[in-house]
Design a protein around this nucleic acid. Structure first.
Ligand code: TTP
Ligand code: MG
Length: 706
DNA sequence: ACAGATAATAAGG
DNA sequence: CTAATCCTTATTATCTGT
């Protein structure tokens, strides 16, 4: 049972039909063997096979009776799904052909007739159709592609250029409909319903049907089920090849009008960009997407909005063609001898016991050819932003088990670029994650939700470095001294964005302003002269008014705490920073652990120095220290560091109480990724309402599907 | 029971 | 000669506090 994995060719992509898969896989294998990547891929493959085996055991344990029973129960769900079928809209999926590669070929005619790919020797983003004949495709390392096709020309990508071209494409589409949404630079869903209605003419005015006879125009893009003998065939066929203009004379029938409109759209895209697009025409996003692949490149495929036609169409589909079914799902399903979409229905009674309710519902909806017919409308807002870098293997820890300088530098750079990108979109987020890919290709991630949204380079770096430190501690546990954790990738992500009015609230004290001539007030953002006493006085009053005015500010109590703390600061912890003061922390004594705040050391001394002179103490009336409301330790009165400490402390509290609880008794519960479906569709009487609700909720979710 | 946080997995371009 | 991306979203399981 060796299914497809990262070590074998993924065909099934447009332009990759009928290749010598045998030969190609041999070359890939040859080029890969022994590498760390290969070893990791093998490991993952084994793990997957293991899970598949487990599932098969569960499958074996199912009696025919139980399966039958589930089938009956699932039929209710099928009926419910069926009742949601809506084929009234004309949904189109537009997908540029070999997009990046096509742009490069357009701009450099020397690349026109050679196999080429965009990317580098390490990784290709995509390839042109000539290169695909050799098995060269996206997500393949360039050096392996070269072995498959020694004449392959690899050109570096230019994302900005593709982005600009993408904008042109969107401009063209916006002339057709306002209801469209871009899934990527080269993919768009459009709702053409309205346009189609507007451009449909009455039969008596139809160029083709002046007379009553309704002529079905068959084209290359006709669905198999509806191909029939008709007179318009040759005309439509040739039009389809040429790809622009209206290929069908008839403008009185819905399907023909969509066909013509989309042909026109694709023509306009080509006029504007000199690039070709393919399109799928159907009644929902799922079907449209599948269809857009069928006549690639530079073609279109229409699937008639007819229930039987749709059912026949999906039934014969290879399971892997379904968007949402990737290599893992395929492995599970093919092990169950489910290879076509029709098998999903046939084996629904089995699926019910092996997959989650959501997955079963997704499968059934798929088999019914159902999908979302809503494009655009809501959201459009991004939910996370991340940057990551791959580098030659690098030690994470130095000889003292501190973060190595190289890693710190990486983290600093990543934080900077991420902060810039956040700033460009005026975003700030509460959750910071780091990602570490070890030299073994194993991926580790850690995240922490702060009590406030942050966006500055310094804030991001501060939290990210803390997370990385904690991860390092964790991974170093029980390891002999001298052990090095070595990584090949480091990444930083920010999510849980807050609304723009809520962001830049109290606590996003940006260190960026500190070295400059002016400092920005973290509350009102006013630029103030870089003098500590007046600055702090300003911030003080700002915070006071802010706290009282904004009860919605969830960090309000944390902000107030240091202000309300009585002057009980113990002087024993002089220069403490966060990690030293947190309970249970083996603290780093270096201030250098807090990047971007070196200048704060100066500020601290400046503050303290001036405080002795001045009666006006910033933030609190005492020795430049605040008390952590959680652990009661005295801390520097640096807002960012203070907040980091609190976030950490809150977490620590949770963790340690959890540890206490757990250590009291045995903790069991084996993990189960695919739960058997006992609490799902199968139910009786009272539970049914609840389940129905859960299902209809997830129904909505799953129906979005694109 | 529910909601939030976390970490891993899966999938897509 | 080496070399296996980068970015975004969703789902799932588990654990936590309420
Ligand atoms: C798979 C992949 C795609 N891409 C980019 C490059 C592609 O040109 C672009 C669109 O992806 P696709 O639409 O999947 O591929 P394509 O447009 O190159 O070819 P076609 O549609 O004709 O099959 O996405 C990446 O940048 N990284 C990746 O890992
Ligand atoms: Mg494409």
């Amino acid at each position: 049972m060796t299914g497809p994995n990262s070590l074998t060719l993924n065909d099934g992509k447009a332009g990759m039909e009928g290749l010598d898969k045998e030969r190609i896989n041999k070359i890939i294998r040859e080029a890969s063997k022994g590498s760390k990547f290969f070893q990791h891929a093998e490991k993952k493959e084994k793990e997957l096979q293991c899970k598949v085996e487990k599932m098969l055991l569960e499958r074996k344990a199912l009696s025919d009776q139980v399966i039958k029973q589930s089938e009956v129960e699932l039929d209710a769900l099928v009926a419910r799904l069926e009742s949601t079928r809506d084929m009234s809209r004309d949904i189109v999926h537009v997908d540029m052909d070999a997009f990046y590669a096509a742009v490069e070929m357009r701009d450099n005619p020397a690349l026109k007739d050679v196999p080429m790919a965009v990317g580098g020797s390490s990784m290709l983003s995509t390839s042109n159709y000539l290169a695909r004949r050799y098995g060269v495709r996206a997500a393949m390392p360039g050096f392996i592609a070269k072995k498959l096709c020694p004449d392959l020309v690899i050109v570096p990508g230019n994302h900005d250029k593709y982005s600009a071209v993408s904008s042109q494409i969107m401009d063209v589409i916006s002339k057709y409909t306002t209801e469209f949404s871009a899934m990527s630079l080269d993919e768009v869903y459009c709702d053409m319903t309205e346009l189609v209605q507007n451009r449909t003419v009455p039969p008596e005015l139809c160029p083709e049907h002046g007379s009553p006879e309704t002529v079905e125009s068959a084209t290359r893009g006709r669905s198999p089920a509806s191909v029939q003998t008709d007179s318009g065939q040759s005309k439509s066929e040739s039009k389809n090849e040429s790809s622009h203009g209206s290929s069908i004379l008839c403008w009185c029938r819905r399907e023909n009008v969509v066909w013509n409109v989309v042909a026109e759209l694709r023509g306009d895209i080509e006029l504007a960009t000199q690039l070709t697009a393919s399109a799928g025409l159907s009644c929902n996003t799922f079907l449209a997407k599948v269809c857009s692949d069928l006549n690639k490149p530079n073609g279109q495929y229409l699937l008639s909005p007819d229930r039987e036609t749709v059912l026949d169409f999906v039934a014969q589909l290879d399971i892997k063609k379904v968007p949402g079914i990737g290599r893992v799902q395929q492995a599970y399903l093919s092990a169950l001898e489910i290879n076509k979409v029709s098998d999903l229905i046939a084996q629904r009674g089995v699926l019910a016991h092996l997959f989650t309710a959501g997955t079963v519902q997704f499968y059934l909806a798929t088999a019914l050819g159902l999908g979302s017919n809503q494009v655009s409308s809501e959201e459009g807002k991004c939910k996370s932003m991340s940057t990551e870098n791959t580098f030659t293997d690098m030690d994470v820890n130095d000889e003292n088990n501190k973060l190595s300088p190289e890693i710190k530098t990486m983290l600093s750079e990543l934080s900077a670029t991420l902060a810039n990108r956040l700033k460009a979109e005026n975003l700030a987020g509460e959750t910071i994650s780091i990602k570490l890919k070890l030299a073994t290709f194993e991926i580790l991630q850690r995240s922490r939700t702060q009590t406030h949204a942050i966006s500055s380079k310094e804030d991001i770096e501060l939290v990210a470095r803390d997370l990385l430190n904690l991860l390092l501690r964790e991974k170093l546990e029980g390891k002999p001294s001298g052990f090095r954790l070595t990584a090949r990738l480091l990444g930083v992500r920010v999510n849980k964005f807050v609304t723009s009015t809520k962001q830049s609230s109290l606590l996003s004290f940006t260190g960026t302003s500190c070295p400059s001539k002016t400092w920005n007030c973290p509350v009102c953002e006013a630029a103030l002269p870089a003098q500590i006493v007046p600055f702090n006085r300003h911030v003080d009053t700002c915070i006071d008014s802010h706290v009282t005015n904004q009860e919605t500010c969830r960090s309000g109590e944390l902000v107030k705490s240091p202000l309300l703390v009585e002057e009980t600061v113990s002087d024993k912890v002089e220069n403490d920073l966060v990690s030293q003061s947190c309970p249970g922390e083996a603290g780093d004594k270096e201030n250098a652990e807090f990047p971007g705040f070196d200048h704060f050391k100066d500020n601290e001394t400046e503050k303290r120095g001036q405080k002795r002179k001045s009666a006006e103490a910033p933030f609190n009336g005492e020795a430049g220290k605040w008390l952590c409301p959680v652990c009661n330790k005295a801390l520097t009165s640096n807002l960012a560091i203070f907040n980091l400490h609190i976030d950490r402390c809150l977490l620590q509290g949770r963790d340690s109480s959890a540890t206490r609880k757990e250590s009291g008794g045995p903790v069991g519960a084996a993990k189960k990724q695919r739960t058997s479906c006992d609490e799902t569709i199968t139910c009786t009487n009272e539970e049914s309402k609840e389940v129905a609700q859960r299902q209809s909720e997830s129904l909505l979710r799953y129906f979005k599907r694109a």
